[in-house]
Design a protein around this nucleic acid. Sequence first.
DNA 1: GATGAATGAGTGTTCATTCAT
DNA 2: CATGAATGAACACTCATTCAT
Lengths: 190, 190, 190, 190
Amino acid sequence: MRVKDENKQEAIFRATIKLVNEIGLVASSVAKIAREARVSPATIYIYYQNKEDLLVSTYLRIKREMGQAMLQNLNTDQPLRDIFRQAWFAMFDFFKSHQDYFRFVDQFSNSPFISKLETKEVEDAFGPLMALVQKGIEQKIIKNVNLNLLAVFLFYPIYTLSNARLCPNWKLDEANIDQAFSMAWDAIKL
Amino acid sequence: MRVKDENKQEAIFRATIKLVNEIGLVASSVAKIAREARVSPATIYIYYQNKEDLLVSTYLRIKREMGQAMLQNLNTDQPLRDIFRQAWFAMFDFFKSHQDYFRFVDQFSNSPFISKLETKEVEDAFGPLMALVQKGIEQKIIKNVNLNLLAVFLFYPIYTLSNARLCPNWKLDEANIDQAFSMAWDAIKL
Amino acid sequence: MRVKDENKQEAIFRATIKLVNEIGLVASSVAKIAREARVSPATIYIYYQNKEDLLVSTYLRIKREMGQAMLQNLNTDQPLRDIFRQAWFAMFDFFKSHQDYFRFVDQFSNSPFISKLETKEVEDAFGPLMALVQKGIEQKIIKNVNLNLLAVFLFYPIYTLSNARLCPNWKLDEANIDQAFSMAWDAIKL
Amino acid sequence: MRVKDENKQEAIFRATIKLVNEIGLVASSVAKIAREARVSPATIYIYYQNKEDLLVSTYLRIKREMGQAMLQNLNTDQPLRDIFRQAWFAMFDFFKSHQDYFRFVDQFSNSPFISKLETKEVEDAFGPLMALVQKGIEQKIIKNVNLNLLAVFLFYPIYTLSNARLCPNWKLDEANIDQAFSMAWDAIKL
DNA sequence: GATGAATGAGTGTTCATTCAT
DNA sequence: CATGAATGAACACTCATTCAT
């Protein structure tokens, strides 16, 4: 029997991301993704149950890679502020070198497909960090307010600032990220 | 010569928003919008060049109404902090009483159509407020950093907090909004 | 507005029957029917909800025409045997001049679509005749057995004999039909 | 009687019949038949040229088995009427215990594939019986009419009466079959 | 101005069949 | 012999848009 060509699945994965980046999620049809991956439309249905499965799987793989990249090498033996600061830089680094991932996630998160997933997105990616936030509250370093509220100031700004459309005049250099993080910290610190 | 029927255009406007709220932007076809507005599909093409024009125009009208609502009754004869605080409450009020507008904007902002517009969204809605921000910088009340950066902490949290999907555990009552605004202010104040 | 072109619906009706006759019901796709009717596939969906509706509607129209043709001019003021004999000739007449109708019904009756309809086929078409059968039983002219059983010998042979594939060596001339009817009558008469 | 079907071809044969019974001939794709037979789709193409060959071969094998079953134990040393009567009971018996065969034949007979076969169906199954019919004509026991016509009354009713869809109110018990056969005999006897 | 009819191009998905191992 | 991977063509159906009145 013919052996499963891993290159094909990888090609489909890359084609999906590339196309969503170029023409958007809505316009990315199965036929176009297949053409981009130089594969028959039917081949996609060997690796994925249907279009939804293709997109959800692609999203989950990206999320997994994102989570790993962000928490990797995170030294938790330092003051809380420094831990979060380090996480910020790791995330901006990741977004800078995976802008295609970022745009895919951005599109997917606002598509009808997102509702097929649990609303654990934030928790999944930031889960370990949220535990640290909780600790910060107990140690009276961070304001004792709703966790959603803290996430809005501590994590969401990273997305917004990484979005070139929303912040066209803001450059992602080290000084700027440092400055931005300071503001986030001012917002949440006691 | 018969004059364009304002009622029809209004019906199309309302139907567009209603349908996008009920079934999402992607699933909202011209035919369905027409049916919802009790109008022929062809009629829509009298008032709008094409589907893109219909959606963009609808979006811009909402944005215009939003901007007006927010700045209305805004008393600028008070300390800067109080002005912004008042604007926050006005926006949350507006979103609460126009959830359909909010959801439409949410969907539209993450559609391919958004790229058809200049990136003046923020400025359009927050233009007058941004002028006040500028004044705050000069008066050394607000941090002297990039305006995009200030907007990220002063205005974007309003969107995020209003989004029930992103902040399911955060209720929009007066105490909470006050608390949230305090954090935003901490982020931007010198 | 453009007026509904009755020719188009008629063309679709004819094309459906023609194609089912030529290539069979299974192979008759919407696209092929549209091409045969010189119409866009989308046009079919103006007149019918979906493929099932197209086929079921076509079937019902044929059945209606068949029922009318068979009972038309049926003189019930004669001996029972003569009434049925007359009905036999009417049916063979109809099948001879509407072989395409016949083959469509034949295919449809053995398709999954048939289960969408009540099992009143026979009753619908033969309803009035079955009432006469009942009367014959009461008058002790016809055997007092299950009605299904009587229909099997009195009516189904008409279908079988009309089917050129099943009875290739039997010609539908007057003498033969008369002979066949005699056998049917022998089967059911007391 | 086979105890195991380790043979792959046998598994394919059984899977084909089972699937056609469960989901119908139209919906029975090669891939589904292969899955049901726990075999690769490609394997089917080792034993059969293509899908048509698979179905036609399956049909012919069933027909062969049917013919054998019906003539088995047929005692021809009795009056003609009793011979046919015995054949009737044998067929109803066969259909009752091989409803899956019956349903497959029913579906196949009304598919486009049937036209790929010579019209010898009846002769194949009823060949030996037709010889007896011929003898009955010569002995002036049976009406001297076209053989197709005799088959229509002597054999086709068996199919119709066995079809639960066509005769929902007729039960296949011994008394009913006897009654039905009497009617068939009345139809053909001189 | 307003309409429903009409459409070609596109959608996601399945098909019978072949390929390479 | 036997397989799962791979595919182009087809499927039923919907789309944004234009036509004819």
